[in-house]
Nucleic acid binder design. Structure first.
Ligand SMILES: Nc1ncnc2c1ncn2[C@H]1C[C@H](O)[C@@H](COP(=O)(O)OP(=O)(O)OP(=O)(O)O)O1
Ligand SMILES: Nc1ncnc2c1ncn2[C@H]1C[C@H](O)[C@@H](COP(=O)(O)OP(=O)(O)OP(=O)(O)O)O1
Ligand SMILES: [Mg+2]
Ligand SMILES: [Mg+2]
Ligand SMILES: [Mg+2]
Ligand SMILES: [Mg+2]
Lengths: 610, 610
DNA sequence: CCGCACAGC
DNA sequence: TACTGCTGTGCGG
DNA sequence: ATACACAAC
DNA sequence: TACTGTTGTGTAT
């Protein structure tokens, strides 16, 4: 019996032999992990049966009551429905894998995955045919697909790429919210209104034996609206012949065409494809972006009937926020499709808290979640953490050593991102895979970013959370209760703050404009590059995709740093920071902010009062 | 400036010289108390001004939003309105005082109060004319009214009297809910329907020089419906002449007449008068019972218009649940009358949580609170406590002594009322009047009712909550997480009650079993620790000699503090272990089952996991 | 869970 | 001499 | 507040 | 050789 239910809900996994895959997974799993998975499965099964009991023992009266209540809530929720927005979710196709395939052409036509023997971060679509997917250990992937190529992570590269993509997309919605490195939530309502005439873009595609450049011309590409100019050359890198096909394409008005245009420009600039969903809210847009993956888009019209129909047959698991457990709980109520959330709504209280019930009803009604329904108001970071797995060990020496290293690394990373943190949470995973956490707070103002202090506290917490002799397979440190770098502007110097704010806003806009121009330039340059074929011999020299600076012999990290400079508002930040620090240094008294709310710090561990 | 705002909202306090009274109160108050009162007043003023700021800084948009939201909520709440019930609140007049006056006729015609020099529990209506009222210290009462007679409490007597009264009232509503010794919430709906013809009762009144018996005949008494029979006799107690007037009185149908009948019978039986309110729900009935105090009743018809009008002009403070602070918060919004709660409803979120807003809206709409709107479903006791004030002292000897006595008394009282308790909360009041509480739980099944164990735990908690040398003016002990005595369950409601009890019993046994394991483990660990103590040289890190806590980078003072704590925790262990052993000896069966909900007991103070 | 503020009698 | 005793609720950490 | 389960990429 | 790393939310106590 399988411990983990192999889920085929992801894109690109149709028609594969699930039983076979499951068998391989099961027999490849280690004993500890299997036991852990079993424990989880049992717990879930117990929860399911508890829910079923609750359903069966529900009296007729309470059923009626719930039916009425749910109908009422639905009526209220219905009032929040908006069908007047153009919401889009854009998600890159097999993101990490696509980047690696672009940069290593030999990977393009073989099943491959990104990660290591112990864990894969994602796989390409060829590999997915074999059941190889994100979150799967590499050694199992290799069993499922012996030809599988596993390439290591280049997180810095993906981060760069992500910045390029978001800078393109931000031209369509300057308030977009990045859901992760590879996806964005955008509200195109305003842009759609502005767009009254079609636009044309130059298109460049490649053919021939050389595979150095993307995108490759395909039969399925839409025909151009201009005569195509074909140029043949010899690639200086691979010495193969390369055919450059240049023409123009046109994109009409309307949100669907605009999304097509965005996707076109992204591929032209990065060589990567993405998929997109268009819908009246973000919850639906997110689902839609998965409908025509890869390299496709899907529009759900802003029409009540269409929305209802779409949602009715939608498997619950497709919805972001409904995971493995929630899906199981719903299925215990007989709910597998989102439409059933409404028809069986009176059962929801048997499985969910009142908040959970409401969020389920929203899904069933096809309404946006409050999460991403608003603009990403919530940009502030809540925590920053580091964790590392290792061969299970009991050795206190080793553990201490690793803990110290973790703290040093975290300190370094955190110092560049936050101003301070007053909470620390230590995480351990036992060799049984059970996870424990213990946390402690220090008085605000005490600097946990200092690596020595961080380590000291971590060590104390660690020492006191475990009986001796426990075998650990992971250690982690998380900082929370964070004060961000530039955020703080106190009410006192309103004038100054105001000025700074104004400056920041102005400069921000300038930066954005500049950035947009730059990207456009870059796009043009790509084109120019093609035109100036001879002068562009040094093809393999990496360039900043934003400013076009050539960077010879510079490693990825530095490249990343450069692009940071290019794209972020570093200069502004520095200004604010230096100003703030100046104020600090100048002896402006850190007011003893009598925090109205009492803190429970580690000092209170000795609770002798007053 | 006065620290405490003298409130005249209580019955029987019209037309007295508030300024004079306030002045006397102020100049009679001790320094400590005045300082404390001032602190509270300042805090309240701060809260008020915070609220005012919030109101002023509310944007137009949010105001609109709130207006809509509040209207919506009101519409929903309105759907819960019931105008089909006959709700009655009955409240004795000057209860304790009336009992004492009845039993000591010399007190009947002089201002008097019940309590002591330090605190009065209530006063009669004559005393209230002088500003003497419940919650006032006796010595201030005496200054306000030099003739004031202060008589000590006879709580047992009042309790008896209360039982008599409730037994009478329960004939009209067997499900009545006693709000305190002197008041009852009743639903007369059923009784009103049953009562189709008038009823007659024999009436006995007394006159003459003898004052031993009540009620005395008054001019204002309603005329009887039968010929009165007068009998004269000599009172064997006071040797005065007594005239007995006997006749009959008739009470018609309808709820008002029924209430009159109830009140008549109560006075005939006990010699005590009461007042009553009649209304469509309990919230309103409670307010109404105060309208015609003393010895009167007030009916608010079950008519929407009448209700609205009544509520519109009602001062907020009249409503049960709106106290001094809530009244002040409302007034900061410009709300002093309940009608304004609705007209200014959009301001409520500036001062109250969402729950608070809802409850305020209910009041403004004249709707019943969920509290007493249903029958008294909530009869189960949640806690039982004892506390005592004394002359402020620092002396540990004295404090320990008093704590022990408290525990002994509480143990005795509790043993007759509950089966067990697993939570203990210790309360101290400093000489500054500041109150602190610290609580601890023991595993369910461990018997805190045992006075020795209760005292031991109390002492530990006390020792760990205070820096030495604090001057205390009160000590208190409260038991919570109570399991009630298994009395003969109501035969009818066996289903519900049975379920609950079964659950409880099961859980209890589970917990006992769990405790068994935990305690065993702890014992083993303690032993191990002792054994390993000698061979534990290899670690330079200082450890707590008791619990083994490793203490790095902690200074001596804190270390000592910690060890103090641990020592007491050791005694906790012993405490719990001894209890466990006792149970073992008794042969109590303990089944091995997992309890679903985790408890945070005092054992968890040692967070060494697994 | 804990500690506190608030409330009522 | 010198501002209670008992019980319950709701919030914020 | 603490600790855990759940979720997403 | 052997099942990730980072961040956020919601719930129970
Ligand atoms: N479980 C995981 N652990 C670590 N990294 C992950 C995990 N899942 C995804 N990632 C990383 C790698 C992915 O390329 C990237 C984006 O995730 P996601 O959009 O869900 O899949 P994907 O982009 O690789 O494929 P696709 O979107 O086409 O289904 O995030
Ligand atoms: N603050 C208090 N402290 C202690 N006991 C009190 C307090 N207030 C009231 N009591 C006791 C004594 C009262 O007689 C009894 C009933 O209270 P309550 O009904 O409010 O007043 P009352 O019955 O004395 O006069 P009223 O005629 O106004 O009802 O409860
Ligand atoms: Mg993707
Ligand atoms: Mg994604
Ligand atoms: Mg009364
Ligand atoms: Mg009363």
């Amino acid at each position: 019996m399988s411990m983990i239910v192999f889920s085929d809900s992801k894109a690109g996994m149709d028609g594969l032999d699930k039983e076979k895959i499951q068998q391989i997974i099961d027999e490849s799993s280690g004993a500890n992990f299997s036991a852990f998975a079993l424990k989880k499965k049992d717990r879930l099964e117990k929860q399911r049966s508890d829910i079923i009991v609750k359903v069966k023992s529900m009296s007729d009266g309470t059923r009626k009551k719930y039916e009425r209540e749910m109908a009422d809530v639905c009526r209220l929720l219905e009032m929040e429905r908006h069908l007047d927005r153009d919401c889009v979710h854009v998600d890159m196709d097999a993101f990490y894998a696509a980047v690696e395939m672009r940069d290593q052409p030999k990977l393009r036509h073989t099943p491959m995955a990104v990660g290591g023997a112990s864990m894969l971060s994602t796989s390409n679509y060829a590999a997915r045919q074999f059941g190889v997917r994100a979150g799967m250990p590499g050694f199992i992937g290799s069993r499922l697909c012996p030809q599988l190529e596993i390439v290591p992570l280049n997180l810095d590269k993906y981060t760069c790429e992500s910045r390029v993509l978001s800078s393109i997309l931000s031209q369509y919605d300057p308030n977009l919210s990045m859901g992760s490195l590879d996806e964005a939530y955008m509200d195109l309502t305003d842009y759609v209104r502005m767009r009254s005439i079609p636009v044309r873009h130059k298109r460049v595609r490649y053919s021939g034996d050389c595979v150095c450049r993307l995108p490759v011309m395909k039969e399925t590409d839409s025909p151009g609206v201009s005569q195509s100019i074909n140029t043949q050359q010899s690639c200086p890198k691979c010495n193969q012949t390369r055919i450059i096909i240049e023409d123009e394409v046109e994109f009409g008005i309307g949100r669907s065409e605009i999304v097509r245009e965005m996707r076109f420009r992204m591929e032209q600039t990065t060589g990567l494809t993405c998929s997109a969903g268009i819908a009246p809210n973000f919850m639906l847009a997110k689902v839609c972006s998965d409908q025509n993956k890869p390299n496709g888009q899907f529009e759900l019209e802003n029409d009540l009937q269409k929305v209802i129909e779409f949602v009715r047959e939608l498997p619950t698991r497709k919805v972001s926020g409904i995971g493995r457990v929630a899906e199981a709980h719903l299925s215990a109520l007989g709910i597998t499709k989102c439409g059933e959330i409404i028809t069986l709504s009176h059962l929801l209280p048997c499985a969910f808290s009142s908040l959970g019930v409401e969020s389920m009803l929203r899904v069933g009604l096809g309404l946006g979640s409050s999460m991403h329904s608003r603009d990403s108001n919530d940009s502030s970071r809540k925590s920053i953490s580091i964790e590392r797995s290792f061969s299970p060990t009991t050795d206190p020496q080793l553990l201490t050593q690793m803990l110290q290293e973790l703290c040093e690394q975290l300190s370094e990373q955190a110092s560049s991102k936050i101003k301070s943190a007053s909470g620390l949470s230590l995480k351990v995973k036992l060799s049984s895979f059970d996870v424990l956490t213990r946390s402690a707070q220090v008085p605000i103002g005490c600097d946990l970013l200092d690596p020595a202090r961080m380590f000291t506290l971590s060590k104390i917490v660690l020492n006191n959370m475990l009986a001796e002799g426990k075998e650990l397979r992971l250690l982690g440190v998380r900082l929370y209760k964070i004060i961000e770098k530039v955020e703080d502007m106190d009410e006192e110097k309103i004038t100054v703050v105001d000025m700074l704010k104004r400056r920041r806003v102005v400069k921000e806009e300038e930066e954005k404009k500049k950035m947009n121009e730059i990207v456009e330039e870059k796009e043009k340059k790509v084109n120019k590059m093609v035109e100036e074929e001879e002068g562009d011999i040094d093809d393999d020299i990496p360039k900043c995709p934003v400013c076009g600076w050539r960077m010879e012999g510079i490693d990825d990290r530095e490249i990343n740093g450069h692009i940071d400079q290019c794209l972020s508002k570093e200069s502004i930040k520095e200004l604010l920071i230096s100003d703030y620090e100046k104020r600090e240094e100048n002896g402006t008294q850190m007011r003893k902010e009598k925090s109205k709310t009492k803190q429970k710090t580690i000092l209170n561990f000795f609770p002798k009062s007053s």
